[in-house]
């Protein structure tokens, strides 16, 4: 049988308390720092889309010292709305793609969250827009959204049409086809003799 005397070491009552305090303190500090870091990251990151110029312009005009004509402000509001619709449509189109990529692991959790945040941002934007319309004309809201849709689509179409010239130049450059001053082409390969199109 063990008869050795156990040496008695005096431990103060406070020791475990201090230990626990230090541990909890460290954990609390860590969690605060971590959340701060995350928040900083989130806010400092570039937003999804490039800067929303239409929105900026609207606010600048509305808050200007010399308030512009009301028609200008309405136009700016419509432009802001058209941009919002454009983004909303784009986000809607991209949602299934982002979904697949996220589940495949091709994008990070971070990006997925930011994508969903972008969607919420546009939702809030629409609500704000609707509120703004009330300032200009009561009851404009009902016609406002369809109006935005038309404007958005028409502007997109115009953009596409206006891009044709540049597209032509890019394609010819890519294909190594040179255009003489008189409009005739210099082809890098052999082309068929005058293949005049008679579509009809």
């Amino acid at each position: 049988m063990d008869e050795e005397e156990m040496p008695i070491t005096k431990i103060s009552v406070y020791t475990p308390l201090i230990y626990v305090t230090i541990m909890i303190g460290a954990l609390v500090v860590f969690s605060i720092k971590y959340r701060q870091k995350k928040l900083k990251e989130l806010t400092s990151r570039k937003p999804f889309f490039d800067r929303n110029i239409a929105k900026e312009m609207y606010f600048e005009l509305v808050n200007a010292d010399e308030k512009p004509n009301e028609q200008v402000l309405k136009a700016a509001l419509i432009r802001r709305g058209a941009e919002c619709i454009k983004r909303t449509l784009k986000l809607k189109e991209f949602t299934p793609f982002m979904n697949v990529l996220y589940h495949k692991g091709s994008i990070s959790d971070d990006l997925w969250e930011r994508f969903q945040t972008a969607q919420k941002v546009e939702e809030i934007e629409i609500q704000e827009l609707v509120q703004e319309t009330e300032k200009y004309k009561k009851g404009w809201v009902s016609k406002f959204l369809p109006l935005l849709q038309e404007v958005c689509l028409n502007e997109a179409l115009a953009k596409k049409y206006n891009g044709l010239k540049d597209k032509k130049v890019d394609l010819l450059h890519e294909w190594g086809i040179k255009v003489n001053d008189d409009g005739t082409y210099v082809f890098p390969n052999q082309t068929p003799h005058k293949q005049t199109a008679t579509v009809k």
């Binding site: 570039k46 889309f49 490039d50 784009k90 596409k160 891009g163 540049d166 597209k167």
Partner: peptide, 13 residues
């Protein structure tokens, strides 16, 4: 890549 693709002007080649 995704950001650039999303913001790509569809009218540009």
């Amino acid at each position: 890549f995704i950001t650039r693709l999303m913001n790509q002007n569809p009218a540009k080649h």
